[in-house]
Design a protein around this nucleic acid. Structure first.
Length: 412
RNA sequence: GCGGGUGUAGCUCAGUUGGUUAGAGCAUCGGUUUGUGGUACCGAGGGUCGCGGGUUCGAGUCCCGUCACUCGCCCCA
């Protein structure tokens, strides 16, 4: 077992990496709280149907990309590949329909059996919000503005584009889908082989194909906006007006689509070109059909999820670790005094580093390594006189002061 | 799932047309300095050359397989 490696697509998070991670999560949590979103933690695994019932026949996802297994008791279980289905399931199981509107925030690990790339692991982390029970466009606006607010607070919004689109209601989508299939079906030879397959399974996805021939064809295809009915147009306009009012910069991307039927109206993505092919940093939309499709009440919803790893990569500087106070005892007897001092200071809220051995030089070196801000030197002289030597490790200045005044001096 | 690139010390990398005991910087440890860190100087430790097989008198170097990472495609709930 000497060649132990982490399982493909998984990573150990520590030091700077996890500080970046926590900065993303904590910032998002704090700001979501200002908008009234409370945290929810759903189970890491769910009954497989929780995901398959909503994903339908989009076979790649179901067959290729879910971690599904059978338990000893014969249950079919899937590690959650995304957060919304679990929240929707909780909404149904906990009978929360009486309590709408409900606002949830989550920060959790997700699992997808995909080929790892930059910004794409098999175990990864998402933050996300769900706003359930509000049918009107102000909910979409709030959720998008919240996403933008979080990215701004993280200092990464400058590199990010906010793209929005409307999928309209069910009637609009059916009409558009037919028109699109009709048009593309007349140009089968021009379509890329991949898109020819998508034509039956997931025609809307052809709109965001990367193939140049597809793109040229799509430019002449019927436009989604022309097939939105009046109600859908009004809804989309209200979303855009709301975003403008809140100074959220956005562009309308008519090629931005969702493959699944439970989505309606607003779809949006926050993208960057700093991460190669994995440019989507936050994505969401309105899912009025999701909860009903899982057997729940007719509760509308809108939300998004963002990749913590991707956001963490965009943060230029990881937040610094806490700078402790280092206590440096010089001899054996002084060590006991130092342990007591460390304990007292920690109880008062200070971060204290106390090494486990070594002479003064070694201990100062260690203090430097843990980036201590000050060293409290405790030798025989100090103990005898009831004082301590306080050395500022940045300036090198040091002075003696009575033991009783240490805590006060450290606060300044 | 498909195609390309890369695997040499803890990290970043060098290593000639195949040729002796595989190198550097950083990091680590020790010393100059047993009451003063960072800087400097001196020294030391640390390598199954990703793994397995093959070609060869001889492989870090060439070939095959495999694993991992990486870039793109597919997918992106």
């Amino acid at each position: 077992m000497s060649n132990l490696q982490p399982v493909r697509g998984t990573h150990d998070l520590m030091f700077d990496d996890i500080r970046r991670h926590r900065l993303v999560e904590d910032t998002a949590f704090e700001i979501a709280g200002r908008y009234g979103y409370g945290e929810i933690a759903t189970p890491v695994f769910e009954a497989t149907e929780v995901f398959t019932r909503t994903l339908g026949d989009t076979t790649d996802i179901v067959t290729k990309e879910m971690y599904t297994f059978e338990t000893k008791g014969g249950e079919r279980i899937t590690l959650r590949p995304e957060g919304t289905a679990g929240v929707a399931r909780a909404f149904i199981s906990e009978g929360l329909a009486q309590q709408v509107p409900l606002k949830f925030f989550y920060r959790e690990a997700m699992f997808r059996y995909e080929r790892p790339q930059k910004g794409r692991q098999r175990q990864f982390h998402q933050i996300g919000v769900e706003l359930i029970g509000v049918p009107g466009p102000q909910a979409d606006v709030e959720v998008i503005a919240l996403g933008h607010h979080i990215l701004t607070a993280l200092g990464v919004a400058g590199n990010i584009k906010v793209e929005v689109n409307s999928l309209g209601d069910g009637e609009s989508r059916t009409a558009y889908r037919e028109a699109l299939i009709g048009f593309l079906g007349g140009h089968l030879q021009t379509l890329s082989p991949e898109s020819r397959e998508r034509l039956e399974r997931n025609p809307l996805r052809i709109l965001d194909s990367k193939d140049p021939a597809d793109r040229a064809l799509v430019a002449d295809a019927p436009r989604y906006t022309d097939y939105l009915n009046a109600a859908s147009k009004d809804f989309f306009q209200a979303v855009q007006d709301g975003l403008t009012r809140l100074d959220v910069p956005f562009i309308v991307n008519p090629g931005l689509v969702r493959g699944l039927d439970y989505y309606s109206h607003t779809a949006f993505e926050f993208t960057t070109d700093a991460l190669g092919a994995q440019g989507t940093v936050l994505a969401g939309g309105r899912y009025d059909g999701l909860i009903p499709s899982m057997g729940g009440p007719a509760a509308p919803g809108v939300g998004w999820a963002a990749g913590v790893e991707r956001l963490a990569m965009l943060i230029p500087e990881p937040p610094p670790a806490v700078r402790p106070v280092a206590i440096i005892p010089v001899g054996e007897n002084e060590s006991a005094v130092a342990e007591k001092l460390a304990h007292d200071l920690r109880k008062q809220g200070f971060a204290v580093d106390l090494g486990y051995g070594g002479n003064m030089g070694k201990r100062l070196k260690r203090a430097d390594k843990v980036k201590a801000r000050v060293a409290l030197i405790l030798g025989a002289d100090e103990v005898r006189d009831g004082v301590i030597t306080l050395r500022d490790l940045d300036s090198g200045a040091q002075r003696k002061l009575p033991m009783a005044e240490v805590a006060a001096a450290l606060k300044s």
